[in-house]
Design a protein around this nucleic acid. Structure first.
Lengths: 242, 242
DNA sequence: CGCCTTACGTCAACAGGGTTGACCCAATGC
DNA sequence: GCATTGGGTCAACCCTGTTGACGTAAGGCG
């Protein structure tokens, strides 16, 4: 099979059910499908029926599942960052970027779980990188530091977001089991063998919650502390948790 | 099918090829299989043939794929943390924990990619949590802070490790394409539309590398800065990158 | 020592997945 | 209006996890 996907103009023909396929329509349908019928709903075959076309028609638009996934990922990034304009405060701006990306991923857990660690090399991703590195440059970092630190920042954001998304993407049963684990298993431990866990026992149920914001805040504190145009050292926590 | 998995003693019978199955043997074989034949090699059926038994025999030992995955994950944690003893320097100790966990995950990419975000609720995981929280308590944090910050720390470590593992787990073709993206796509951008990216252009090929250590160092800096028994504010970078 | 129970290895089958090559119609360029 | 060929369709292949039924041999017990 020649999986040649010309992205020039195309010579589209209405599908059996009358729909005109397009890259955008496919990606949108994929996201809708995931949103409506849960994380497991994304498969070439189901996507085909949802679009009212033969599943294999998709191979005319994407080289394969992977290609489709990258397109979906870039769409999520684009939607999440839509309307975002970086403000004067670079720390606050990075923080908002982080929250937006995470929200976008959690809204599409299954897709995010597949795509979060990839390089989409598409429009929206490139724009986001441009914005982020721009913010660090505006903070006074050298180009080399800016690139390196942006990578550390965005990787943390993306991987945390992916973790949250992966958790959302679990079948309800497993999700609840993981959640209960902190209440159940970790509650009945031998105090002698596990003194630290015993000391923090009341806090353990909270371990099931996401640590996303705390992690981002810690990271931004460290960045602010390292910034040439420093924002001070001790007290620059950009936001309180909970 | 009654997926009842008694973990008491069992009444084992040699398999058709003469092997005596056991939970440990299955987990070890799974890890070996992944290590030898690549990330795609882990499937119930292949695991069955590797063990010299019918694939469905595994269901006598694990409730399903998920259960098996959790067992594998805990084994990885256990192997990675084997022989680790926390030292006097809590920052250095946390740093070593991070590096060990990451090394363990990257060594078993496919398994890690499936399991990194789960709560195994098994022996090795519990021991690791005990150690980590103990370190933060020893640093002088209140129990509530210790639990919360440990969560932020370990989630960052785990999700970064998972990201690295997920990348390793990609088919070679996709892995190389993602890697090349930073050299190719991101090199030929319009300087007017993308000033920041143009400013850091020489640094972009490095974006393909892992930012794990940088992120961990940033996080540990922030933790050290927040610690009651402070290690000082500005200059506590626990390790230099590269 | 030998029976009975039942754990557990095996087998066949099902539903779903991605991907392919062949087929052929109709939209487009000339 | 004709030739070209993009692209929608169909059938088929091989993979996956999971199940219920089946029977054999291991272990407890008399």
């Amino acid at each position: 099979m020649a999986t040649r996907v010309p992205q020039e103009r195309r010579r589209r023909r209405p599908t059996r059910s009358g729909v005109l396929l397009s890259e955008d329509l496919i990606v949108e349908t994929a996201l809708r499908l995931i949103g409506e019928h849960g994380p497991e709903a994304l498969s070439v075959r189901r996507l085909g029926t949802a679009l009212g076309c033969d599943p294999t028609a998709l191979y005319r638009y994407f080289h394969g599942t992977d290609d489709l996934v990258l397109a979906i990922a870039d769409r999520i990034i684009g939607d999440a960052m839509e309307g975002f304009v970086p403000g004067d405060d670079w720390v606050a701006s990075l923080r908002e970027m982080a929250l937006r990306v995470r929200a976008g991923y959690v809204a599409h857990p299954r897709a995010a779980a597949m795509a979060a660690h990839r390089v989409t090399r598409r429009k929206s991703e490139i724009r986001a990188v441009e914005t982020g590195i721009g913010l660090l440059l505006s903070a006074g970092f050298e180009p080399a530091s800016a690139a390196r630190l942006y990578l550390a920042f965005i990787d943390t954001v993306l991987s945390h977001a992916a973790a949250d998304a992966a958790f959302q993407a679990l079948p309800r049963q497993q999700r609840e089991a993981d959640h209960r684990a902190w209440r159940d298993v970790y509650q009945d431990l031998d105090p002698v063998a596990y003194p630290a866990l015993t000391a923090v026992r009341p806090e353990l149920p909270g371990m099931a919650d996401s640590s996303f914001e705390e992690a981002v805040d810690l990271l931004l504190e460290a960045l602010a502390a390292r910034a040439p145009a420093a924002r001070g050292c001790g007290r620059s926590r950009p936001g309180a948790r909970r």
